[in-house]
Design a binder for these strands. Structure first.
Lengths: 353, 353
DNA sequence: CTGTTAGCGCTTTCAT
DNA sequence: ATGAAAGCGCTAACAG
């Protein structure tokens, strides 16, 4: 019933080997033979069985993308970027949404071990444990948002040679979180703010750690004092932003500005602030991170850092292609540039004007 | 290097058939043999090659989910639902994001023809063409958001027997769009609104068509006049909502309320309305559809229809499982209930109070 | 209850 | 430039 390669071969009067070559675009086949085969393929409506092909070639043509949660609009855009290059190379994207249960992340690696996926892009950005590093060692993997961290942070029990070893012995793509946040602080200080709260993500996320570093450095650089009680930890959600703002309001700390680790946290915070009678930006300024589509539509429109989401995906997939191709044995680390988008959530004029 | 079944068999002193049976949990194997095999599997660190298995079983264990755009937060939630049951049955979900280019939808069906996917859930909700129907006929497919449409709408050239044929000879899952919108209109009329604009989706979307029907019926039922110039067509995005609201403002039509086809359209409209000095709900009421997470966080919090997104995915996948299992030859149509969530975007009191 | 064996449909040496 | 043929690793008759 299902026509197979041998049928095509018979119809065209050639061998299956030749049909296979034509389909693989082998330049060694004579043009005339090629036409005969193509005609037969067309005539018989032949569609190669990818199950057989994949089995033979030991490749699933699937790549796995693990995200913390697809509910964060950052990831769909990145995935689009990944898809766009994946499709060009005939890969399908399998989605691994771990709903922020990072323990389940490693379970997805099974897909590689059993050949159900040829490579993985891990976008989940928790602090890598030794177990994690051990697990991905040697696998065709690209890490997103996990940048270099010194070994001492890993609490390793054995530091054989005392050298300053770094964990990203894996290919990674990232944005310059530290610098981006410094830009935010620069901007805020320029507007007259000196007391800036930070609604961060979870403590154990590398992104949180890096953005905190940027926050600190930005403050110091601008001669502001760094006050740990101005740092709040959430979980990236609107809800967290809302709760954290409430907490801030209770605290008696009276920052004139808040920097939030992502736009969703900002949206939640804005709601709480407004509900408590604060005007934005007049009473308090706020700036987000990511520049999701919504940022433009909230009231007031959100000043934020735009990171190149689609490109992030493109780069990640291109890197993975290299890795799967064996091209990149050692690490390769891509760092993408972000930039500040100034809207209305911190006022366009110098504070106090 | 990679240990394979024969190695396990040798190690355990049995045949590959037995190993295969143990792995398939065949109850016919003696407990003792089973233990021996399991021990060998463990000892040798054996992981079955799913490529070989899939080839042999003629199944990819992939299911494809085609969405209009993953950027609409509705779909991630549905996909989560799909995943949750897919995973239980050892299926992986392949994501097909067509970025609203509905012409590309059919291209994804290739994945079934070449066995790269065992089944498809099509969530893209354009008006089905005859070509579309022809293309999916006989395939293991479940349609989401495409409900019954009479044949005359299809502009078929031949209506052999004049019978009232319906197109959903395919299994579908849907929500009751018509009734849901009627509820919205009821609510609005109860609040005193008589002139209600409708920011719809694209004309050729079934969802748009159904919601328009609900809008009309709701108006008629409540003794309001249906005015076609109060209907605006967009493309589901915040941007569309924004533009449409601007258009409405220019038009001189002065509705006291707007119903938008989805929450994102509502968010865009709210921005435009506010920018033009209108207060919501005092000057104009607005209600959305979907109840995405954001709905609660916009200012004012959005009254909207909550549809069971996760369950939608669960039902779709369960249906697909049946279809792939050959259980459902004829159609099966699941209709899920939605309900109105009252927040603040149309005021809690009777208009004029 | 277990083993033998014949493929699944394709790709890829190895010959020619 | 093409063909013959040997599998890839597993499952499923079938036989015992």
């Amino acid at each position: 019933m299902m026509t197979k390669m041998i049928d095509v071969a018979n119809f065209a009067g050639v061998s299956t080997a030749t049909v296979s070559r034509v389909l693989a675009n082998d330049p060694k086949v004579k043009e005339k033979t090629k036409q005969k085969v193509l005609k037969a393929v067309d005539e018989l409506n032949y569609i190669p069985n990818s199950l057989a092909r994949n089995f033979r070639k030991r490749s699933s043509k699937n790549i796995l993308v693990v995200v913390p949660t697809i509910a964060n609009p950052l990831y769909p855009t990145i995935i689009s970027g990944i898809q766009s290059v994946a499709r060009e190379h005939n890969y399908q994207v399998i989605l691994g949404d771990i709903s922020r249960n990072f323990e389940t992340e490693l379970a997805y690696l099974e897909l590689i071990r059993d050949k159900a996926a040829d490579g993985v892009i891990l976008l989940a950005a928790e602090l890598p444990t030794e177990e994690f590093i051990e697990a991905i060692k040697g696998l065709p993997v690209v890490l997103g948002y996990r940048n270099t961290v010194k070994e001492e942070n890993l609490h390793s029990t054995e530091d054989k040679r005392g050298e300053n070893k770094r964990i990203n012995i894996f290919p990674t793509v990232n944005i310059n979180n530290v610098k981006s946040v410094e830009c935010v602080i620069d901007h805020l200080v320029q507007l007259g703010h000196k007391k800036i709260a930070f609604f961060n993500g979870p403590k154990n996320s590398i992104v949180s750690i890096d953005r905190l570093k940027g926050y600190k450095q930005g403050l110091v650089k601008n001669g502001c004092s760094f006050e740990p009680e101005l740092i709040y930890y959430g979980d990236w959600t609107m809800n967290a932003g809302y709760e954290l703002a409430l907490e801030l309001l209770q605290s008696g700390n009276d920052p004139t500005a808040i920097f939030t680790v992502n736009d969703e946290t900002a949206v939640g915070a804005i709601k709480a602030l407004k509900e408590n009678g604060l005007r934005i930006p007049e009473d308090i300024a706020i700036v987000g991170f990511d520049n999701i589509e919504l940022a433009k539509f909230v009231d007031p429109p959100l000043t934020t850092i735009a990171q190149p989401k689609f490109e992030f995906g493109v780069h990640a997939m291109e890197l993975l292609l290299k890795v799967m191709n064996g091209e990149t044995i050692s690490q390769e680390n891509i760092v993408l540039e972000s930039h500040l988008i100034i809207r209305e959530s911190c006022g366009s004029k110098i504070k106090g004007d």
